[in-house]
């Protein structure tokens, strides 16, 4: 596997070692190893059902995994547990604290529809960080300004367009000041115009040095935003490298199938 110069230049912020995850008898991730540099934008590609999203969800324990461990700045923050093992009260508290390192952006936005935009963004700082309201308001204002939606702050989230909702989702995650942002197919339910909107926000975050893990199906998106691409196939990382390397060399049949399949799709839509 090609070792990208990128990582050598940067301090490793996140390391995933031998992560295995099954849903019942079905093994989805079969020993994933991954290193992410500080400020790096890592794009995760792979065919449907290969476990890309599951990997992301394992990182902040929305899914429990059975084996392996995840380390943040060299410190192990979660370990695999055998299936069915219970969690003590203390385990749960640790889990909550550990999730704060990650900000997650979902495919279907998952904004809280009963709270106004500003209250969505303030909900983390107020309830989790126990910030006073005025302080949380200031944090939320900055986050909303960053995604260019401050003027929408008194609106109800479902009155916004998809792209705007996703930007609010990003702001909500940013308000918790996470170390790493996780994007789970964050543009899959958006049209090209809205995708562009979200893309601009991601690019700005990248330029500010935010570490980001981006799961996507959109190859153009991957090429433009990614510092490095990993390709997941059959539950393991089957290829990794710079976007140029992955898209030009197509190192495995799976990569080739995905890229050519996508070209085929593009050709079809042009025809």
């Amino acid at each position: 596997m090609e070792q990208t110069p990128f990582l050598n230049r940067r301090e490793t912020i996140l390391e995933v070692r031998g992560l295995k995850k099954s849903f019942g008898p079905k093994r989805v991730l079969n020993g994933v190893n991954l290193k992410v540099g500080k400020g790096e934008v890592l794009v995760i590609l792979g065919p449907n059902g290969c476990g890309k999203s599951t990997l992301l969800r394992c990182l902040n324990l929305l899914e429990k995994y059975q084996e392996g461990e995840v380390a943040l700045r060299g410190e192990v923050i979660s370990r695999g547990r055998p299936e069915g093992s219970g969690l003590s009260r203390q385990d749960r508290a640790v889990e909550c604290a550990m999730r704060r390192h990650f900000g997650m952006v979902f495919q279907r936005f998952n904004l809280f529809p009963h709270l106004r935009v500003i209250d969505n963004v303030m909900s983390g700082p107020i309830n989790v960080l126990r910030m006073p309201r005025d302080e949380a308001f200031e944090v939320a204002r900055k986050a909303l300004c960053k995604v260019g939606l401050w003027e929408k702050h008194p609106c109800d989230p479902l009155t916004l367009s998809g792209g705007q909702q996703q930007r609010v989702g990003i702001a909500r995650a940013l308000a918790m000041n996470p170390d790493i942002m996780l994007f789970d197919e964050c543009t899959s339910s958006l049209d090209p115009m809205m995708t562009k909107e979200v893309f601009m926000v991601l690019r700005e975050l990248a330029s500010e040095g935010m570490t980001m893990l981006v799961v996507t199906h959109d190859l153009d998106f991957a090429r433009e935003i990614g510092d490095r691409v990993v390709f997941i196939e059959n539950g393991v990382v089957s290829a990794e490298g710079t976007p140029e390397h992955i898209f030009e060399a197509k190192p495995t049949p799976g990569v080739r199938a995905l890229i050519e399949g996508s070209l085929y799709e593009t050709r079809l839509s042009r025809a």
């Binding site: 999730r99 900000g103 809280f112 989702g169 918790m176």
Partner: peptide
Amino acid sequence: DPGQREAALSLGMS
């Protein structure tokens, strides 16, 4: 939507 709970948890809520 279960995504509501997940979004809340992902922010660090219990």
